[in-house]
Amino acid sequence: MEKILFYCFAAILLFAATMVITVRNPVRAALFLVLAFFTSAAIWLMLEAEFLAITLVLVYVGAVLVLFLFVVMMLDIDTSILKEGFTRYLPLGLLVATLIVLELVAVLGAANFGLEQVPMPEAAEGSNTKVLGRLLYTVYVYPFEIASVILTAAIVAAITLTLRPSKRKTQDPAKQVLVRSTDRLRLVKMASEKPKDGRPRQ
């Protein structure tokens, strides 16, 4: 039963991943990427890694891809220009792709990990959030903290690169809140004017 489910999800995942790179419309490609992430989350759930699976959906599907979609929808990408020169670069591209695949197989091949020697790790008993949190903050606390510092530095760098003092006229809410009615409106007291003989003045 579990095997059937795994092959179903794996087939959907492969199909979605292929569609991401072949479909012409960039918005549809982004939506197929959503499907791919969702299916990989389902496969992780089957491995009883519920924390990782749900976090994948929460972070990638719920936030990153929404922003991705946001940008892709705003751009009007003409795919015909992107496809130009496809055949001209095909031989070179194929050569590079074959090289990368060979290198990856050499480095990441099943033999290098010694899958036969190490038994399959048991899924955590009970809550795997707790187990993961405990490991992250004790055994792996330095790598974890260093990774977060690097990410923070990246965020600060990205903001400083894009944030320029704007020349546009913008609203400053702090100043808006401080405005009192006397700053905008002046009430002038003046004596009512009434002509002496009771007729309106010419």
């Binding site: 599907v61 979609l69 929808m73 809550s127």
Partner: peptide, 23 residues
């Protein structure tokens, strides 16, 4: 076990309906 996370993840997906409808 991860009920709260599940709710947060699922509700975060509801934005797709609106974004896709608009596009």
């Amino acid at each position: 076990n991860a009920g709260l996370l599940y709710v947060l993840a699922i509700t975060s997906m509801s934005v797709y309906g609106i974004v896709i409808a608009g596009w």
